[in-house]
């Protein structure tokens, strides 16, 4: 079973770090295992063989410990932290601005994902907004900024193919962003599995239906998306969800003053 595919190439860096860390730790563990099994066999108790008395506090021993400590710290810790921090800044460091990204407002409720997207007029909060439950449709090529709040308990917006997740809290707007480059059709071709779908899972325990909080994300080409969007916002489903969108500020300016 090899790993799940990725939705774009930038995210493969996470897989790379995982493999790098696996190799690093496996080497160390191989040495540990060799010492463990080797010493157990070589120094087992047998007649005529006496244990060598050493307290291990000789300068040589102290030097060895320091060398190993430095090796572990710089060789393993700092190198892993460097690559990880690099990946973190690249993937999660700078969020896409709201006018150049597809903004999706997610509203998690016990056991379903409510999605809201600005209709073809690009303005959120107008009649032609597109609401949908457990179904997210985004254009490829443009970054997607997902802003999330929950009505009741904690949930976690998790798309395994983006190699990332973000908890959804009641009372605080959290955000998650990724660049969907590979459309669903391209993914199906790559895996030659006709009914492959990008699945959305809930990764934070949220009660009885935690398992069933499954969503589907469809990535369309920009043209297909434009057609879909026009058609959807034409007959914008009259979702009676006004009370859910309670004091959710959509204007970045509100957040700006809070900043300084």
């Amino acid at each position: 079973m090899e790993r799940l595919i990725t939705i774009n190439d930038a995210v493969t860096e996470i897989d790379w770090i995982f493999d790098y860390a696996t190799i690093l730790t496996s080497c160390i563990f191989a040495v540990v295992l060799a010492m463990l099994i080797g010493f157990a066999i070589k120094y087992r108790e047998r007649p005529g063989h006496k244990a060598h008395y050493t307290r291990g506090d000789s300068p040589a021993a102290v030097r060895m410990s320091i060398v190993v400590a430095m090796l572990v710290f710089f060789g393993v810790d700092i190198s892993l932290a460097y690559f990880d921090h690099h990946a973190f800044l690249e993937l999660y460091g700078n969020p896409p601005s709201q006018d150049e990204a597809t903004v999706v407002d997610v509203f998690a409720k016990q056991f379903e994902w409510n999605f809201a997207q600005a209709g073809s007029d690009g303005e959120m909060g107008t009649e032609d907004d597109i609401f949908s439950i457990n179904k997210l449709t985004v254009p490829a090529g443009k970054p997607v900024l997902v802003r999330m709040r929950s009505l009741d308990v904690l949930h976690s917006f998790f798309i395994p193919y983006t190699r990332g997740k973000q908890d959804v809290l009641p009372g605080m707007t959290t955000a998650f962003w990724f660049d969907p480059d590979k459309t669903t059709a391209a993914a199906r071709a790559e895996l030659d599995d006709p009914n492959f779908e990008y699945e959305i899972a809930c990764a934070e325990l949220c009660g009885l239906g935690h398992t069933t909080m499954r969503g589907i994300m469809t990535v369309l080409t920009p043209e297909e998306f434009a057609v879909w969007e026009a058609e959807e916002s034409a007959n914008a489903a009259n979702f009676d969800m006004p009370e859910i969108w309670w004091d959710w500020s959509l204007d970045p300016a509100d957040y700006a003053e809070e900043d300084e």
């Binding site: 540990v32 010492m35 463990l36 010493f39 157990a40 120094y43 087992r44 108790e45 047998r46 063989h49 006496k50 244990a51 060598h52 050493t54 291990g56 021993a61």
Partner: peptide
């Protein structure tokens, strides 16, 4: 690991 090194296990 150094404790079991050159011990008599």
């Amino acid at each position: 690991l150094c404790t079991i090194w050159r011990g008599s296990l």
